[in-house]
Design a protein around this nucleic acid. Structure first.
Length: 425
RNA sequence: GGAUAGAUGGCCGAGUGGCUUAAGGCGCAUGCUUGGAAAGCCUGUAAACGGUUCGCCCGUUUCGAGGGUUCGAAUCCCUCUCUAUCCGCCA
């Protein structure tokens, strides 16, 4: 949610930033109009209410003195009706205003490059060199199948397309990765959390999935509840409706949860393997920051995400998303992309965003710098650290051997009980 | 799922239609007192929205949420949510 005061005062700048994303800026004019109407109605109804309050006091006074107040009561009857008529108009105007407001994306930061889609993202760093294979590389889904580490066919029978059973060494590797990632983030000061994976619609509104992106979510039938598409939702909403003390900031959280995505509109893309599923595990990082420190925090979090791939020794690069590819609630986003030999390309494995005060306004998360300070909205940031399934795919493809086995990255060996090579058991 | 009791300011807690601009207490802050402190006393103590000659000013709203009755609702009525306890079920 944007700040209406900023829309009023810097209308042209706001419109320019909306247009830069490729969104229709005329919605800002509609918002301004609704805001003016709304304020006019507020003034009308408040003037009448003020009058009513004064009259009520006089009526009370007369009653106490046992005087007749019938005339005053009669006079107020019409005022009451007038108030409810204006209030009804006001409610309608305010509902329209809020609906429009809640569908405007966050204002992009000046650093964000202008571009139409992901082909115009800007590479900022590249780490490691893709390995030269002297044999034919296999895609991770073939290796998973050969080593009996995953079963897509049976998953399709049980749950449908885009689900997977991880089996044997596959399940163990997934668990090892989650533990490894949580341990690394824990050492970096992120508090480990286990969160709900089903939430109320208010929480989804708070982080910006609702009302605009309902089709991307799975909804619980008959309930106003949804499965989370990322633990960003639960971790960010953890402090919803709260005013934190300034010295409690920053709050740093990490959690592993399942993530559920309907993947509406992605038919035909990444149809094989672990890349695009309806359900996958992800380790997430979320930070609640003082507004003065959020940009530095974004850089730090991006390094924390990259750090996992550095430790796993997998080639990767970091790109700055352009205006055409950046998410709804974000002001600036880095994607970390991992090298996948089967794609012969880098593939997104983490997305790290500074949402500025956009989610804080929706979820009403504030802080007070000190006791007497006025409450202000915090900044929220989130980033994957990392998508576990995609990390497994990257390990399997980058560490595959000619004999069909997979070497375990050194840092993971302790997490796999000493197993150094994954093979068919 | 069933039954009962609740939901009031940072916290505790009073309040069954106008004398509550929410009593009282705790906590917190300023000051007085003191060599300093404790105790005591004084004063103050929310948020959102709107207006604004922008002043520490004015107005409106907020007693779980939403409707309703009324000239007027923390208070009466309806619906819902949540919490606690007990029963049932269950990992």
């Amino acid at each position: 949610m944007l700040d209406i005061k900023r829309i009023r005062q810097e209308t042209e700048d706001v419109k320019a930033r909306v247009a830069k994303r490729g969104d229709d800026a005329s919605v800002i004019d509609e918002i301004i109009n609704l805001d003016e109407k709304r304020r006019e109605l507020i003034q009308q109804t408040e003037a009448l209410k003020s009058k009513r309050n004064k009259a009520s006091e006089e009526i009370a006074q007369k009653k106490r003195n046992k005087e007749n107040a019938d005339d005053a009561i009669q006079a107020m009857r019409d005022v009451g009706e007038e108030i409810s008529a204006i209030d009804q108009q006001l409610n309608e105007t305010e509902a329209a205003f809020k609906d429009k407001m809640s569908r405007v994306a966050n204002l992009i930061h000046d650093d964000v490059p202008v571009g139409k889609d992901d082909t115009e993202n800007v590479e900022v760093r590249k780490t490691g060199t893709p390995r030269e294979f002297d044999f034919d590389v296999k895609a991770h889904w073939d290796i998973l199948d050969d080593l009996e580490m995953a079963d897509f066919e049976r998953a399709a029978r049980v749950s449908g397309a885009r689900f997977v059973f991880l089996t044997g060494e596959g399940a163990r590797l997934e668990r090892a990765l989650m533990n490894f990632m949580l341990d690394v983030h824990g050492k970096n000061g992120y508090r480990e959390m286990m969160t709900p994976q089903i939430v109320k619609s208010e929480a989804m509104f708070g982080t910006g999935q609702l009302p605009k992106f309902e089709e991307d979510l799975f909804k619980i039938d008959g309930e106003a509840m949804y499965t989370i598409p990322t633990s960003e939702v639960t971790l960010t909403n953890f402090h919803r409706e709260e005013t934190l003390s300034g010295d409690a900031l920053p709050k740093k959280f990490t959690a592993q949860t399942a993530c559920f995505r309907s993947e509406a509109g992605s038919a035909g893309r990444d149809t094989r393997g672990l890349i695009r599923l309806h359900q996958f595990n992800k380790v997430e990082m979320v930070r609640i920051e003082h507004p003065d420190h959020s940009w530095g925090a974004l850089e730090e979090m991006t390094e924390h995400a990259e750090n996992i791939l550095n430790l796993l020794e997998i080639p990767h690069r970091t790109v700055l998303l352009c205006t055409g590819d950046i998410g709804f609630g974000s002001a600036k986003t880095y994607d970390v992309e991992v090298w996948l030999p089967s794609y012969n390309d880098y593939k997104e494995i983490s997305s790290i965003s500074n949402m500025t005060d956009f989610q804080a306004r929706r979820a009403n998360i504030k802080f007070k710098q000190d006791k007497d300070a006025k409450p202000k909205f915090v900044h929220t940031l989130n980033g994957s650290g990392l998508a576990v399934g995609r990390t497994m795919a990257a390990i399997i493809e980058n560490y595959q051997n000619e004999d069909g086995t997979v070497t375990v990255p050194e840092v993971l060996v302790p997490y796999l009980g000493g197993t150094k090579v994954l093979k068919k058991l």
